[in-house]
Design a protein around this nucleic acid. Structure first.
Length: 269
DNA sequence: CGGTCTACCTGAAAGC
DNA sequence: TGCTTTCAGGTAGACC
């Protein structure tokens, strides 16, 4: 499922229901997510959620005793429902509030996570992450320098969490198309000027998707339970064999590290 | 270290 | 129709 825009949209969607309200009880129906759910999550029962922020694709719900950490993996969804709403298949975790609302995590593939971090600590998973893509810390100069000497394909380079977080397969494809860069090109073989273009397109693409409520394919629903928006304008992802939106020649597809890359042989070099 | 590959899990879709 | 195979938006950790 979710790429960064969906996670950000989820954050915006759930915040009004959660911030300032008390956690009544945490219900873990399936503790075997990507990592076992730690007992420490129960330390937050009885406490108010003071803020919710996002780091990469992790959501952190803060209380004075520590933060609950959520990750949606490939198939996770968050919804805010009434306490009495019956659970459905793959509803694994409920964060029940004293308001009668419940933040409910549904995740068929269980690649998601529900973890905890103590106050003034950073969970080990969050310590090695690269810059946020929508901040100044992610800029052309920095990744140009970092890419020198690398034979790694540019697509894999920008999907590396140490380089920049939050660029998943969909947006890597889209941004490379907009920047006119062949996804297979060696990262170390790309000029600063082209990195400037690429960085701009990554930021723009993510901004657009957030603004439109997150790209919605089959797995995402709005956090208040309404179905999500459908198909923002993706230019190339999932469109192999169809005409390039720019030159109308057939879009090609290759696999890189087991992930599909769709690109235009003519427009991307 | 840099780069590649597997593993985790379910379900939809495609192939036969 | 039904069985088998492939693929899916993530990413840590093992491996060479």
């Amino acid at each position: 499922m979710p790429e960064l825009p969906e996670v950000e949209v989820s954050r915006l969607g759930i915040s009004p229901f959660l911030i300032g309200n008390d956690i009544k009880k945490i219900h873990v129906y399936q503790a075997n997510l990507r990592w076992p759910v730690p007992e420490a999550v129960y330390l937050t029962e009885g406490l108010a959620i003071t803020s919710i922020y996002r780091r990469a694709k992790y959501l952190l719900l803060e209380t004075v005793m520590g933060s609950l950490i959520l990750h949606l993996g490939m198939s996770g969804k968050l919804r805010v429902v009434d306490r009495t709403t019956p659970r459905i298949k793959h509803d694994h975790v409920d964060i029940e509030l004293t308001t009668g609302k419940v933040l409910r995590l549904n995740d068929p593939r269980r690649f998601g996570a529900f973890l905890f971090q103590a106050p003034n600590e950073t969970h080990p998973l969050l310590t090695k992450l690269g810059p946020e893509p929508l901040t100044e810390k992610f800029n052309a100069n920095a990744i140009y320098q970092r890419s020198r000497g690398k034979q790694l394909a540019i697509k894999q380079f920008i999907m590396d969490n140490h380089v920049v977080v939050g660029v998943g397969n969909i947006y890597a494809n889209e941004a490379l198309f907009k920047a006119g860069i062949d996804p297979r090109r060696a990262a170390g073989n790309i000029s600063l000027a082209r990195y400037q273009k690429l960085v701009g397109h990554i930021k723009e693409t993510l901004h657009q998707a957030i603004a439109q409520g997150g790209t919605t394919l089959k797995d995402f629903a709005q956090t208040d339970g309404r179905p999500g928006y459908f198909a923002q304008q993706l230019l190339v992802y999932g469109k192999a064999g169809q005409p390039c939106p720019q030159c109308f020649r057939e879009l090609a597809e290759v696999r890189q590290n087991n992930r599909s890359s769709v690109y235009c042989r003519t427009c991307q070099k």
